[in-house]
Design a binder for these strands. Sequence first.
DNA 1: CCACTTCTGTAGTGATCGCTAATGAAATGA
DNA 2: TCATTTCATTAGCGATCACTACAGAAGTGG
Lengths: 198, 198
Amino acid sequence: MATTTAKRGRPRSFDREAALEQALRLFWERGYEATSVADLTTAMGIRPPSLYAAFGDKSALFGEVVDRYREGHGAYATRALAEEPTARAGVARMLREAAAMATDPDHPWGCLLISSTVNCTSPEVTGAVRELRNANVRALESLIRADVAAGHEPAGTDPAALAQFTAAVVQGMSQRARDGATRAELERVAADAMRIWP
Amino acid sequence: MATTTAKRGRPRSFDREAALEQALRLFWERGYEATSVADLTTAMGIRPPSLYAAFGDKSALFGEVVDRYREGHGAYATRALAEEPTARAGVARMLREAAAMATDPDHPWGCLLISSTVNCTSPEVTGAVRELRNANVRALESLIRADVAAGHEPAGTDPAALAQFTAAVVQGMSQRARDGATRAELERVAADAMRIWP
DNA sequence: CCACTTCTGTAGTGATCGCTAATGAAATGA
DNA sequence: TCATTTCATTAGCGATCACTACAGAAGTGG
C-alpha cells in the first residue's frame, strides 16, 4: 500500500480541530443531550452535512470531544498521578489542580467527564463516560495499592477507601464549581481532603 | 368568604399525590429536561390536558416535585442537622444517612436536587435548584458558626470551610451513587470525611 | 329535569429534534 | 480539457418536543 499524501477531491473548507474545540466548549457547558446539532453547527460555523461527513454523528463527535478533553484540559489528573513520587503527593497535586481547572474563567466550569452526561437518556453514551470515571477510580486505587506495597505509604492506608473518597471529593468539587464555588474555596476543600490520609 | 368544602364540576379521576410521586421518580431518574411530558403522562397514567390542568406546566410540576422531595426523601438532611445536639454530630448523621438514601434500591440513586438539573437549558429551573443547594451550604455554615459561638466546637473550627467541604462530599457521594458506588463504600466516605473536623 | 362547572380524551398545533437526499462547487489525475 | 472524487449548500425527511382547542363526560346546585 502506497501512502498517498496528496488528497483527492475538494478539500475541507473549515478547520477540523477548531470546529472540534467549539463542540467541546458547547458539550462542556450544556452537556451531551442538551446540546443540539443545530447548536453545534452554529458554533462550529458549518452546516449539518459537513458535521456528519467529518465526524459521523452526534455521539461520535461527542466521543472525539471526550478524547480531546482527556488529552487536553483533563490531562492534568493523569500527569499529576504519574509525575509525583508518591500516590499521596500525586493526589494532593491532582486535587489542587482540579480546583484551578474547574474554576478557570477561560472555559466552562467543572469537569466535562463528570457533568456532561448526568442527564442523558442514551445508555451507550452514559455508560461509556461512566466507565471512564469508574476506570479512573480503579486506576487510582491500583496506584495507591502499589505505593503501599512499595512501602511509600504508612501502614493502615486503605487503597480502595482512599480512591473512593478522592473520587467523591473530585466529583463534588466539579459540582460545586458549576454552582459558583471559587478557586480559593475549592483549594481549601482539596487541602482539607488530604488530611484524611494516614 | 365562606369556605366551600363541596366541589363543583366533575371530580378529578386520578390520585394527584400518586401521580406526583410517579413524576418524582421519573425526574429523579432522568433529570428535568430529559424527562418528556409524554414520559410523564405515561408514568402518571393520565393524558396531557389532565397534567396541565392539575399542575400548570412542566416546570411547575417539577417545582412541586422538588418540594415533595425536600419534604420526603430529602428531609433526612434537615432533620439530622436539627435534631443532633451539635453541628458535628448533625453532619456526621447527615452524611451517614446520605450514603443510605443515595443507594437505596427502592428509588433512583443519588440526590434529586443535585443531579436532576445538571444538564438543563432553562436558566430559571437550573437557577432555582442551584439556589436551593447553595442555600443549604449557607445554612450549614450558619449552623456550624452558631455552634462554634456557643462553645460546642473546638477552636480552629472554620464554619465556611467545613460547610463547603461537606457540600462537596455530599454532592460527590450522590454522583458516585449514580455511578454504582455501594452503600458501604459511601458510608466509608462519610466516615472519612468526618475526620477533617478539628 | 336543566343549567353550570370542571375534568377527560381525541387530535391536533408549530417548533425543534437528529439526520440526509440531491445538487452544485472545488479540488486532483490523466 | 475532462472525468473523478470529495466537500458544501439547500431543503426537507419523519419523529418528537411542550402544549392546547374542542367536544363530550361527570359531577353539583337549582
